[in-house]
Design a protein around this nucleic acid. Structure first.
Length: 189
DNA sequence: CATGGGATTGACT
DNA sequence: GTCAATCCCATGC
């Protein structure tokens, strides 16, 4: 992935991240679900301008914005668009690629339950061992990295729909999924 | 300084 | 389907 990848409209980045690979340590997975957020719409943490919590979103593109949801779940986002604009993509689900045994151990599940390892934004950070301390991670250098699509994922079929679990701006079709994937947090509709 | 809600999950009815 | 867990932080008094 080149630095300019993230310095584009967040909707383009969210779509293009589908099929790319998130890696942390020995664990990796293919992004099969993403959602875009932008400071111009009220569902975004960046809506209303920078605060100490969301300041990473307004920083330079290509870094990780990691935050805690509901007091216990860690969420991974990629910071997008130019510095000063609060835009990011929430990674919502992965298809596990490697490190499945460790993922299952972290998730407290049997390794054969592959579909349950990363099928949700809080699940995938737990499976990959991503923590709040990874906030600000350079996605090109690590410790959390995102790399381009591999063979078989050059042209993933993508479905677009409404974002999940929010109460504001609920009608924006800013959720992107691999059509028919069994690794989503919820089916595309 | 107190309060309440949230980009969720898993256990339970 | 319902609901509690759990904590950061934005907001308001």
């Amino acid at each position: 992935m080149e630095p300019a990848f993230y310095d584009r409209p967040v909707l383009e980045v969210a779509r293009d991240l589908i099929g790319c690979v998130v890696t942390h340590g020995e664990c990796a997975g293919v992004i099969v679900e993403s959602e875009a957020y932008h400071d111009t719409e009220p569902a975004s943490h960046a809506f209303g301008g920078p605060t100490r919590r969301n300041e990473m979103l307004f920083g330079p593109p290509g870094r990780a914005y990691v935050y805690l949801s509901y007091g216990l779940h860690v969420m991974l986002n990629t910071v997008c668009e130019q510095e000063g604009i609060g835009a990011g993509v929430l990674i919502r689900a992965l298809e596990p690629l490697s490190g499945v045994r460790l993922m299952a151990e972290r998730r407290g599940l049997l390794p054969e339950r592959i579909r349950d390892l990363c099928s949700g934004p809080g699940k995938l950070t737990q499976a990959l061992g991503i923590a709040l301390s990874d906030n600000g991670s350079d996605l090109l250098r690590g410790p959390v990295t995102i790399t381009p699509r591999q063979a078989g994922w050059e042209r993933p079929p993508i479905s677009v729909g409404r974002r999940i679990g929010i109460t504001r701006a609920v009608d924006l079709p800013w959720r992107f999924c691999v059509t028919g994937s069994r690794f989503l947090s919820a089916p595309a509709r």
